[in-house]
Design a protein around this nucleic acid. Structure first.
Lengths: 170, 170
DNA sequence: TTGGAAAGTCAACAAGACTGACATAAAATG
DNA sequence: CATTTTATGTCAGTCTTGTTGACTTTCCAA
């Protein structure tokens, strides 16, 4: 069934066999199962540190944007400040994250990973990247392009902007 | 940057520009953001019924495989039976799911959606399918094929089997 | 018939999300 | 300068959904 599900492949106006309810259902289930695989390796590592996915997410995005503020992080993570604060408090107390009062605006706290924080970030992202790399390699560059394209259509447009706001432009 | 990230597109042995850490990181973040978008619509609906994602998942897979047992469901959902049981108890009490004692093996319970259960399933999957359909349509059939391919590589192989075990074969 | 394995249920607990209320400090505004 | 808004942090309490542990019922095999 993977062989030739798509009769047409040109610009538009084909018979849209890839939009049947069955194809959509498979896409939905694939998202569910893949997300579980996607989080499995980090989850296993986090157990050793008594941290959870929430900590991983914070660490990831602080690493990605060093010096980001709490508010920025709230925007990206889409959780309440109470929820994020609980996580950040732990990470700061444990010496994985450093919180510096802003120089221009002293209300803001700028967040940075410490050496220890970078170490955990690396351990986590190594595992997650390894799985992603294997999947990308097995699927091939064209599949990866399609993968990215569909995911960007599924996500909130604000997140799509954020995603493409670094490396190439931002 | 989306224009021509992949110089080679043949069988293998290209320069593998799509496997850089930056590309992998974007894939990882795309999964995170897309999954949030993917669950957003059902989550909104479920609030009206005081149910959560766990209920949605149970309803989805009971609908997909009517008469499935609790153990089958446990295997697919990857949670403990106690966790699933709490959800099933609610759905059964609320009249969305019917649990029939097995005829061959009286230890087993076979699960079915009631009319009411099917109604909620429809409401939920309509919303989720609508988003998926829009994304698929915008991305095009080739992208969808790549999307599916990468997701299947990311997920546990057991789930890949399950995913492709209906409609075409099972 | 006895004992182990399997399927399912009940009870208690933990993580991590949520809301609401409140505190502090600094910036922005009139 | 007084007031309001913004950014952050904290406390308390709730909810969902995951966990383990203990238990019952049923099946099967020695």
């Amino acid at each position: 069934m993977q062989d030739r599900p798509f009769p047409g492949k040109g610009g538009g106006g084909e018979n849209l066999l890839f939009l049947t309810d069955d194809q959509l259902r498979k896409g939905i289930e694939a998202m569910f199962f893949a997300y579980r695989g996607f989080t499995a390796d980090p989850d296993r590592i986090l157990e050793n540190y008594a941290y959870g996915r929430a900590h991983h997410r914070a660490i990831h995005f602080i690493n990605r944007s060093p010096g980001t503020t709490v508010n920025n992080l709230l925007d990206i993570l889409g959780v309440t400040k109470q929820s994020l604060n609980r996580v950040l408090r732990t990470l700061i107390n444990d010496g994985l994250v450093e919180s510096r009062v802003g120089t221009r605006d002293k209300r803001e706290r700028h967040l940075y990973l410490t050496e220890k924080g970078r170490a955990l970030e690396h351990e986590l992202s190594d595992a997650q990247r390894a799985r992603m790399r294997a999947a990308f390699r097995a699927a091939g560059p064209e599949a990866v392009q399609g993968f990215r394209k569909v995911l960007e259509e599924i996500m909130d447009p604000r997140m799509r902007e954020f995603l493409n706001s670094m490396t190439d432009g931002g």
